[in-house]
Design a protein around this nucleic acid. Structure first.
Lengths: 198, 198
DNA sequence: GTTACGCCATAACGATCGTTATACCGAATG
DNA sequence: CATTCGGTATAACGATCGTTATGGCGTAAC
């Protein structure tokens, strides 16, 4: 159970670990296959190529992240706590997903240039899908929490959210989630207009 | 004056633009030379290679950023405004530096894996130098502003700072600096314990 | 037993990329 | 005029990488 028997899962795990710990472009397909204990041919049998592999890794990640966030929101027992549940989800997700260095989607957006013509890139589409998910949910939860200006609150929380993910690259602050929670509480308390309901 | 006559500056400008708009690994040396209107040999005459070119781009950028931040701090007329001057500096720096997509240092840290052995990487050293600069200054300014817990405030502001830089990748929020300023004001006001001195 | 299937190992291909060598040109300097 | 210097153009090298082809090995199904 430590290593899933199916080679497909092992490839996805290895790709996720290598892509977002060391970088997507610098990680060769052979390294992914070797890390998964799988032949290169098997990788190409399951996924069509590197781009498709990256696409499936991102899709799986987006799915797991959505589930984590859903669970964290469901576990919260007040509208304000539901709004702040993003950071709980980040913490539990990172604890379970392992030592992935930083955000898959930001890493992909960073390394992958937009195609010159107006054509769409299926990989970058997943990044934008994640962006829409985060922004939309934050705005909705802010509205339900009774914030005076939900969009402004969502923008500030999104800033803290992106800050957490990118702070993993700098290594500082040491506990980005804790700092983000503290800052988010100040933002939300100010917007709701009530004192914190510890 | 639009295009500096010295090819060295043109190469640095072109490399900065391409590296951090499209990605470092995916940008070839030939593209940099072509964009600078310079032969590849000239690029290798001035800089020893791609790594050294990247190093000089980062060094120049760190220098300019330090100057901008210094100026913004000097222009502020209260300790709290000096603490918040980071975001003024980000705005003026981005307005002057041109359409660079996002933070050079985070992009470099994202694409460049740490060397496996304990050896030091001169490029990643510059990234860490930038990290130390930002964290150290924020903590010092927070202390001078009379914050109750300067390190905690610095951590939250660093989070917002990283959030601004990485939000440029997502494209949202539309005006990250404005949102960061609003959130930072809430954080600092709460830490100083006084009402905002508009 | 034979067939089919999933996987592995090896090798090779085309392409890109970082880097260097060679030869040429023009202007400034003596 | 000769020389030197900074720049250009072209070509080539080695290396890496994404991708594919070939052939062989085990296991489960019929």
């Amino acid at each position: 159970m430590a290593t899933p028997p199916h080679p497909r899962e092992r490839i996805l795990d290895a790709a996720e670990a290598l892509f977002f710990q060391r970088g997507i472009a610098v990680t060769g397909v052979d390294q992914v296959a070797a890390s998964a204990g799988v032949a290169i041919v098997t990788l190409y049998k399951h996924f069509g190529g590197k781009d498709n592999l990256l696409r499936e890794v991102l899709a799986r990640r987006l799915d797991e992240w959505t589930r984590h966030w859903d669970a964290a929101v469901a576990a919260a027992d007040s509208p304000v706590r539901r709004l702040l549940a993003v950071f709980d989800a980040v913490e539990t997700f990172r604890a379970e997903a392992g030592p992935t260095q930083w955000c898959c989607f930001l890493a992909t957006a960073s390394e992958r240039p937009a195609p010159p013509d107006g054509r769409a890139d299926p990989v970058l589409d997943l990044v934008e899908q994640d962006t829409r998910l985060v922004t939309g949910r934050l705005a909705g939860l802010a509205r339900e929490a009774g914030c005076a200006d939900p969009d402004a609150v969502a923008a500030m929380l999104l800033l803290l959210y992106n800050g957490v993910l990118s702070s993993l690259l700098r290594g500082v602050p040491a506990d980005p989630v804790a700092s983000a929670r503290a800052a988010a509480r100040l933002v939300v308390d100010s917007a709701v207009g009530t004192r914190p309901q510890r």
